[in-house]
Design a protein around this nucleic acid. Structure first.
Ligand code: FES
Ligand code: FES
Lengths: 139, 139
DNA sequence: TAAAAGAGGACTAAAATAGTCCTATAACAG
DNA sequence: CTGTTATAGGACTATTTTAGTCCTCTTTTA
């Protein structure tokens, strides 16, 4: 099982690419598709979601493309994942309030709850800028 | 996206049920199916994997069923998930070594690596016994 | 030795993921 | 004011994963 699906992977690659090719340049989809290895038509859909989430902005027409709407420092991995894939949860019952019948219900749920929170925190702690700089190297 | 799929959910429910109905009793599949709400034929497959992983032991024939092979204190959520669903990863490249072309490859991977480890640690920290006792209540 | 129980493989159904295609709309250059 | 370049967005399809069923076989013990 992978937490990050293809669409989010593409999104992260695109954002990292944009963060590397510094500043406020506008990046046409074609460039992003080439840079990420994603099919352009598919990447479009992904970027549309990032746009809807306010992570990037897009412009149509000649000279159009994609640019950051938020500072890449402030874009967390969690918000990218949620924008592109939808909610992240350790178990179904943390997304919709189903799957719970009286007996097991809240023992498992309440104890997994801690893990759920920690998981989200983990994803919230990493930003696009983090991903774009190799943190393995000494500062 | 849910980290824990139905099969693992059933497995955890069954294990929690066994841990609650204390000691070394042998639990027939029918009982576990009723207790978990899982279709019995499906639960069988799940239990077989727990068996293969050495988490539980099974006995055939009259009076047969399922019992713990490991102390429920020592059974981590991670090992249940891995036994039933297979490997857990934040991204595909942490399972198989694909999906990586030179450019993005290791920046993203190396930085997500930390999250990957933390995630596994999180799942390793919780045991079946933990799940069976409501940790919200004061000690 | 028959009934009760799990083993295991082949199969099917449903849902999520990944991707395509086609038409429309926006921006700008000439 | 029109053609070209670009994204928007919906409908569609293909592939893969998840979930579940079914049937036959073996083990165990009353
Ligand atoms: S809320 Fe999911 S098993 Fe109880
Ligand atoms: S290893 Fe997965 S994107 Fe580089």
């Amino acid at each position: 099982m992978e937490l990050i699906k293809r669409n989010t992977d593409y999104a992260l690659r695109a954002l990292v690419h944009m963060a590397e090719a510094d500043n406020d340049r506008i990046h046409p989809m074609g460039e992003l598709a080439a840079a990420t290895g994603a099919p352009e038509t598919f990447l479009r859909k992904v970027v549309q979601k990032l746009d809807a989430a306010g992570v990037v902005a897009t412009r149509r027409g000649r000279g159009g493309g994609v640019c950051f709407q938020k500072d890449p420092d402030a874009i967390t991995v969690l918000e990218v994942v949620e924008a592109v894939q939808g909610p992240v949860a350790i178990n179904k019952c943390f997304i919709a309030n189903r799957e719970c019948d009286d007996r097991f219900a809240c023992l498992i749920r309440s104890n997994l709850g801690g893990i759920q929170n920690d998981l989200l925190e983990l994803l919230r702690a990493a930003t696009v800028t983090n991903l774009a700089r190799d943190t393995r190297l000494p500062a």
